[in-house]
């Protein structure tokens, strides 16, 4: 038994070293004074300065943040409706197709999604005249389409972990459906909505392939700019950018994880107190 624990322990250590080693190397070399990324030339923050003075990167980052926020908001709205339809409405016509269309974007290779959406936009433009040209709008629509599937899955798993008895009770007591949704369903799924929004936001910020297909001239998102830079070889200001992203993400994940664990504990305590009070 002890030997096996030792084995599992070393597997975990190896696994986490594998996951974090490369990220750590990115961070360390972002403070390297030398232009040769892997030769240590002393500590320096000059690449951070260069990063912030590069208008191309700054513009692309702002554009990506804007697309990300709009995308996440729409994806949460549509994904919530989809999750609600799947878990709460029982059977309806075309349900199989609907659940299929929710599951497929999760694994669909990006090149297929990107190409198919581009061809759709081109066809739509020639048939109905919309969207005229490609750019921010088409990127946002493309991102909403795949992120809403992720949101739907998160909302769905939150909804199915709670049975519909609370909502049914409220309906039986005469509350209007929209009121039931606002007063009962929405607060229950609020953590899932926050998680879904953040996930949709990061997915959009991260996407290179689909954005490259559906983008037009003048609309370059951050991953597109980064890709064109690193394609030519390693460049130290990209390391600085990576460090900033890692820092922001880890802060956000740690804070939200801590909040989630705390609220979960409080909920469990409430449930236990309620049960103790009843007996």
């Amino acid at each position: 038994m002890r030997r096996r624990n030792w084995f599992l322990f070393s597997a975990l250590c190896f696994g986490f070293a594998f996951l974090y080693g490369p990220i750590l190397s990115l961070i360390i070399y972002s403070f390297n004074a030398s232009r040769l990324v892997t030769v240590w030339g002393g500590f320096s923050t000059r690449w951070y300065g260069e990063l912030f003075r590069d208008p191309q990167i700054i513009d692309a980052a702002l554009l990506s943040l804007r697309i990300g926020a709009v995308n996440a908001t729409f994806a949460v709205a549509l994904g919530t409706l989809a999750g609600l339809a799947i878990t709460r409405f029982g059977r309806f016509r075309g349900r199989m197709l609907f659940t299929g269309m929710i599951a497929a974007p999760l694994v669909m290779p990006e090149v297929i999604t990107g190409l198919s959406l581009l061809l759709l936009f081109v066809t739509l433009e020639s048939v109905v005249g919309w969207p005229s040209g490609r750019g921010v709008t088409t990127i946002t629509i493309a991102h909403i389409t795949f992120s809403m599937a992720y949101v739907a899955v998160i909302v769905q798993s939150r909804l199915s972990s709670l049975d519909g008895s609370l909502e049914e009770a409220a309906l039986d007591l005469g509350a209007r459906p929209w009121k039931v949704f606002l007063v009962i369903t929405l607060p229950i799924i609020a953590p899932a909505l926050v998680a879904g929004w953040l996930l949709a936001f990061t997915l959009s910020l991260d996407d290179l392939v689909i954005a490259s297909f559906v983008s037009g001239p003048g609309a370059s998102t951050l991953p597109m700019v980064v890709f064109s830079k690193v394609r030519l070889g390693v460049s130290p200001d990209v390391n600085a950018l990576a460090t900033i992203i890692v820092l922001i993400v880890s802060l956000a994940v740690v804070v939200s994880g801590w909040l989630m664990i705390r609220s979960e504990r409080r909920r469990e305590r409430d449930v236990q107190e309620a049960l103790a009070g009843r007996s």
């Binding site: 986490f16 996951l19 974090y20 490369p22 990220i23 190397s25 990115l26 070399y29 990324v37 892997t38 990061t202 910020l205 991260d206 290179l208 991953p223 980064v226 890709f227 690193v230 070889g233 390693v234 990209v238 390391n239 950018l241 990576a242 992203i245 890692v246 993400v249 880890s250 956000a252 994940v253 740690v254 994880g257």
Partner: peptide, 20 residues
């Protein structure tokens, strides 16, 4: 959390890390 964290950081940049 430690397993999920890398998933939230940029995919492109994590691939780039291996170039170095």
């Amino acid at each position: 959390l430690l397993v999920i964290l890398p998933f939230w950081t940029s995919f492109l940049l994590r691939v780039y890390a291996w170039m170095g």
